[in-house]
Computed example of a mutant assay.
Amino acid sequence: MRRKLIVATTAGVLGLSGLAVAVPALAAPDGTGSAVERITDALSGLVDDGSITQEQADEVATTLSEAGVGRGGHGGGGGPGLDAAAAALGMTEDELRTALEPEGTTLAEVAEDEGVPVDDLVAALVGAQEERIAQAVEDGRLTQADADERLADLEERVTERLNSDAPVRGGGGHGPRGD
């Protein structure tokens, strides 16, 4: 809940004061810098003028990056949710996107169609997210307490997303967004 409030507040602040600077910085068409770096850079003016703290900027950058905001290119890079799902299903990311194109198609349905047990797909997605969270802690982008909070009900959230037709993280299609 706290994270959603911070993201919403920052989005409002960006919309009012930093959108002209933030949008080009997030787009980074040349692919330079990570999404977190680009988002953090875009928020630096707000930190400098005291609108938000550096801690808030870092948390917003991490949250937006995990949601797929700020990824360059057409349709984004897919992220762990999409590439881990594709690997578990024995498909490429493009094949998975195509399989998810029909409106209302879920990753659980694609897994069934591919003869992959849904539990195997859940395990792959949970494992990918656990690795991302551990890396964020190691990189100092996330505290261990925040990591523990995100890990608490991860399997339940992933399972719920597998049966949802919410947009796939990183681009077109449907399914889990990885968080």
Rank of each mutant, 00 (worst) to 15 (best):
L151R: 11
R71F: 15
T143Y: 03
L5Y: 08
A67C: 13
T159W: 03
L46W: 09
A85G: 14
V69Q: 10
D119L: 03
G12M: 02
V21S: 13
V36W: 14
M91L: 14
T40N: 02
R132D: 11
L142E: 05
S65A: 05
V21Q: 13
L26N: 09
A11D: 07
V47Q: 07
L16N: 08
L14D: 04
A136N: 14
A128Q: 01
L89F: 00
G90C: 03
E103W: 08
G12T: 02
A147H: 06
S34M: 10
D30P: 02
D41C: 04
M1P: 14
T32D: 15
E138Y: 04
P167Q: 12
T62L: 12
E95W: 04
T10L: 12
V168H: 12
T92D: 06
T40K: 06
E95L: 07
G12L: 06
A35L: 00
V126S: 07
M1W: 02
I133H: 09
G104I: 02
L125M: 15
A123R: 02
E138V: 04
E149N: 12
L5W: 01
L64Y: 15
G77F: 05
D94C: 09
L125S: 04
A57E: 04
L96R: 01
A28E: 13
E138G: 09
I6K: 01
E55S: 13
G140N: 00
A108F: 07
G75E: 11
E95T: 02
K4P: 13
L162Q: 05
R132H: 06
L26C: 04
R169E: 09
R161T: 06
G140K: 03
G172F: 11
L82Q: 07
D146V: 08
R150E: 12
A124P: 14
E101S: 13
A99P: 08
G127Q: 03
E131D: 12
S164L: 11
L26M: 09
R71H: 14
G76P: 10
L100M: 02
L142Y: 00
D120V: 01
A22K: 15
P102N: 10
I6Q: 08
S17Y: 10
L43R: 09
S34F: 00
G79C: 05
E103Q: 14
R2H: 05
G171R: 01
D49I: 02
G104P: 00
A11M: 03
T32L: 14
P24Q: 04
R157Y: 01
P167W: 07
V47G: 15
R97L: 05
S164I: 06
D83R: 11
D153F: 11
E103M: 09
T9F: 13
G172T: 09
A152Q: 11
L142T: 00
